[in-house]
């Protein structure tokens, strides 16, 4: 039985703990500080907070939903080593990967990864900017319905029509402007969608070059994938080097050490990177 199933509810788990060990909760085994609040999340993907009770073990209802709608804490790799798809079949709910009319599952955090970010192309910015996304799930995942968000909290919804789907193991480029990306020699066949063609240069999702640079794939308030590349690497003018993810995991993607600054052009005369292909980080 996975811990996800075991943890049917926070209070339930706490009671299991206390009862099975025949000891009263004390300050040494509480899970929260009485009177303080912690985050909680709900089946409809909303998030809120909940108040820690005086026993330090139980909570008020989550502010964002009814108790029956609250999700247990998401298991980390150490707590549940089963695959996302295995989890879906276990709990019978489809897990967090709700599908849509396409029948293709929406990604849960980490099933898609942002694997490359061209935030400082040598061509015109921001039109020549692009992001590479990778499907780490064993089955196709739907990008439609997700949102791109940049470090300045600007967002762009990925449209539902046509449905944008990423095959398992597939790398694809999300280009701000397909024409500009193609002019920069990004292979057109790798471009899955464009997210800002014709949008004013100060509008839409912008891949900032400074320390505030960041980009995420969001599903509502849930972060599916992200890169906090801002400030990680220095580029000299005229730029032209993407950052690439070396280790294909969500945890790794949050660490600067898991990224490299591209050093090789992907085509003669191109900028440096590997759009639509696996990393060539040393």
């Amino acid at each position: 039985m996975s811990l996800r199933l075991l943890a049917a509810g926070t209070l339930g788990v706490a009671l299991v703990t206390a009862a099975s060990c025949k000891q009263d909760p004390t300050t040494t085994d509480r899970v929260c500080t009485p009177g303080n609040y912690v985050f909680c999340r709900c089946k409809n993907r909303s998030e809120g907070t909940k108040l820690c009770h005086a026993d330090g073990l139980s909570f008020d209802a989550c502010s964002a939903c009814d108790p029956s709608e609250e999700l247990p804490p998401a298991p980390g790799p150490a707590e549940d080593a089963t695959t996302p798809d295995a989890r879906e079949s276990k709990d019978g709910s489809g897990g967090d990967s709700g599908g849509d009319a396409t029948g293709v599952a929406r990604p849960t955090p980490g099933e898609l990864l942002i694997t490359e970010v061209m935030y400082d192309p040598s061509g015109t910015e921001p039109d020549a900017e692009w992001i590479e996304v990778y499907n780490a799930a064993p089955t196709p995942r739907l990008l439609s319905g997700l949102q791109l968000k940049d470090g300045g909290n600007r967002t762009e919804a990925i449209p539902a029509d046509p449905p944008f789907v990423l095959a398992p193991g597939q790398y694809a480029v999300l280009a701000r402007d397909t024409a500009a990306a193609v002019a920069a020699l990004v292979p057109k066949g790798t471009i899955l969608l464009e997210y800002g063609a014709g949008v004013a240069v100060s509008r839409g999702v912008l891949l900032a070059n400074g320390v505030g640079g960041a980009v995420w794939l969001m599903d509502g308030t849930t972060t599916i994938a992200g890169s906090l590349y801002g400030g990680w690497f220095n580029q000299t003018t005229p730029g032209g080097k993407s950052v690439q993810l070396k280790t294909l995991s969500l945890d790794a993607s949050a660490q600067q050490a898991s990224w490299c600054l591209s050093s090789n052009p992907w085509a003669t005369g191109s900028d440096r990177g590997t759009p639509g292909a696996a990393s060539d980080c040393p």
Partner: peptide
């Protein structure tokens, strides 16, 4: 924040 929105609860597990 996705991995443990209620990170404080992870120790419960």
């Amino acid at each position: 924040r996705f991995l443990a929105v209620a990170c404080a609860l992870v120790p419960v597990l």
